[in-house]
Lab assay of single mutants.
Amino acid sequence: NQASVVANQLIPISTALTLVMMRSEVVTPVGIPAEDIPRLVSMTVNRAVPLGTTLMPDMVKGYA
């Protein structure tokens, strides 16, 4: 089972991601792979991401 990136807090729309905002967790459905966390830092989300939500590729500008 692959770990995915999960929001560690509410991430408001257009917020630049930082390490403290994300954690890795094995979830269903599978989202962005946890090993991509370093790549996600400073990318922005294009929607509000509630606490505990799995980050999907279409939620992060420039990721997909």
Rank of each mutant, 00 (worst) to 15 (best):
N8K: 08
L51P: 10
A48E: 12
N1V: 13
S24F: 06
V5N: 01
Q2G: 13
N1M: 15
A34E: 09
A34T: 08
D36K: 11
T18I: 06
M59S: 06
P33W: 08
R39I: 11
A64W: 08
L40H: 00
I11K: 00
P33D: 05
S4T: 04
S14N: 15
P29H: 05
Q2V: 13
R47M: 12
L17N: 00
V6H: 01
D36L: 11
P50L: 09
A64N: 13
G31R: 01
T54S: 04
Q2N: 10
V41Q: 05
A64S: 10
V45L: 10
L10T: 14
I11G: 01
M43Q: 08
D36G: 06
A48T: 15
V20C: 05
K61R: 15
G52V: 03
M56Q: 14
E35V: 15
V30R: 15
I32V: 06
A64D: 11
S4Q: 00
G31I: 01
S24L: 06
A64T: 15
R23C: 05
T28P: 00
Q2A: 12
D58W: 13
Q9N: 07
L40I: 11
L51S: 15
S4M: 01
V20D: 15
R39K: 12
V41W: 02
P12G: 08
P50Q: 14
Q2L: 12
I37V: 07
A16W: 06
V20I: 15
P29T: 05
P29N: 05
P50T: 12
L55Y: 01
V26Y: 12
L55R: 01
V26A: 11
E35Q: 10
A3V: 09
V20L: 10
P38V: 13
Q9S: 08
R39S: 12
V5R: 03
V5W: 01
T54A: 05
G62F: 08
P29L: 04
V49Q: 02
G62I: 04
A34K: 07
L17G: 00
A7S: 14
T28C: 08
T15H: 07
Y63D: 03
V41D: 03
L40V: 05
E35F: 13
V60N: 01
A64E: 14
K61H: 15
T54H: 02
P12C: 05
V5L: 02
S14K: 15
T53R: 12
M21H: 09
E25W: 06
E35P: 07
P29S: 04
A64H: 13
V6F: 01
R39H: 10
A16R: 10
P33R: 09
V60C: 03
P12D: 09
T44M: 12
V26Q: 11
V45S: 06
A48S: 14
L51W: 08
T28Q: 12
L10P: 10
T15I: 08
T28S: 15
P29Y: 04
N1T: 15
T18R: 08
V49W: 03
P38C: 07
A64V: 08
V26C: 08
L55W: 02
M59A: 10
